[in-house]
């Protein structure tokens, strides 16, 4: 894949589309199997090592989860979700939290800067920091909360799916280091196949609600997850129905065209009125005196 293989870009529209050649590359995906994760955080460390990220050391928040949230300096974290099952037993449900690389990314839709967020032909969502202006629209649009604005440089950061490794034919650093095989990497087709087999296996073992998290609202994701109970994604800190939100859609698809029509309409009406009705001039009682007085300094003071 080359850096020309862009499938979608922020700041474009149907009138001003992205070039649509070379979209034959198979989509890639990361598969996170929550039923295999033991919360060792090796993925978290590998990510910070490979991408050279050093988040500031935080404080204890009553959880092994550390840091508590994805940030510009920590692109992936393991979430330690505490879950009480039907037998009143407490257990951890780990979530490998990072950019989901949505097929229909809300961040890209919300971004109003051309080319600052692009989707590569392999399905990964990538940021161009030299174009990002730091408005943060993507940060508030992301339904997963996995894109973060760095206050130090006012640029957004997130998981790149280790684009530099993938380009060289390697798996992302987190997958490479995963100790339990909870993380896998490959074509999206292969990952979905493996996930399906795993879900069937889990059902056999008594996890009747086991399922695949590949949310429809964002047309599927570039990180799919196998969960113990697909009906309770919230218990993994995942949204039940992630999608591009209504205000973001209204802003892009309704306010922009209607607003443009309104602005142009107002200008057009003003111009037509000016040309047809003409000037609106006051006939002064004494035009010469008026001109003199207006052009000389008024005697009266206008100060308060």
């Amino acid at each position: 894949m080359s850096d020309k293989d862009i499938a979608a870009s922020s700041g474009l529209s149907d009138l001003n589309p992205q070039s649509r050649i070379r979209r034959t590359i198979p989509k890639i995906a990361k598969l996170f199997d929550a039923t295999k994760c033991n919360g060792c955080k090796a993925c978290q460390v590998a990510c910070s090592e490979w991408n050279d990220l050093r988040a500031e050391v935080g404080t204890f928040q009553g959880s092994y989860q550390n840091p508590m949230a994805v940030s510009a300096d920590s692109w992936t974290i393991i979430k330690f979700n505490e879950f009480v099952d039907d037998n009143k037993k407490l257990r951890w449900q780990f979530t490998h939290s990072a950019c989901m690389h949505c097929e229909d990314p809300a961040c890209l839709t919300a971004c109003s800067t051309k080319g600052a967020i692009v989707q590569k032909s392999n399905g990964t969502v990538e940021l161009n920091h030299d174009k990002c202006v730091g408005c943060g629209y993507c940060v508030s649009a992301c339904p997963f909360g996995t894109i973060s604005l760095n206050p130090k440089d006012s640029k957004v950061y997130k998981c790149t799916m280790c684009a530099d490794r993938v380009q060289a034919g390697q798996e992302p650093a987190c997958v490479k280091t995963c100790t339990t095989g909870a993380l896998k990497f490959g074509t999206r087709e292969d990952m979905l196949f493996i996930a399906e087999k795993r879900v069937a296996q889990l059902k056999e073992r008594g996890y009747a609600n086991a399922g695949l998290y590949n949310p429809k609202g964002v047309s599927g994701t570039g990180m799919v997850m196998v969960l113990h109970d697909i009906n309770k994604p919230e218990s993994y800190g995942l949204p039940a129905d992630p999608k591009t939100s209504l205000p973001t859609t209204l802003w892009q698809d309704v306010v922009k065209p209607l607003g443009t029509a309104g602005i142009l309409g107002a200008v057009a009406v003003a111009c037509v009125h000016r040309i047809t009705v003409g000037r609106n001039i006051v006939e002064e009682d004494d035009p010469i005196a008026y001109a003199q007085q207006h052009h000389s300094h008024p005697e009266k003071t206008d100060k308060e």
């Binding site: 508030s140 909360g145 604005l149 973001t248 209204l250 602005i263």
Partner: peptide, 30 residues
């Protein structure tokens, strides 16, 4: 919606509506 100073104090949903309202009001004002 003023990043990075004030936005972190508001929920993402309210910021999304703020962005929409900001644009609507700006167009009306213009």
């Amino acid at each position: 919606m003023w990043q990075p100073y004030f936005t972190p104090f508001f929920s993402t949903v309210s910021v999304q509506w703020a962005i929409l309202l900001h644009a609507v009001c700006a167009v009306i004002m213009l």
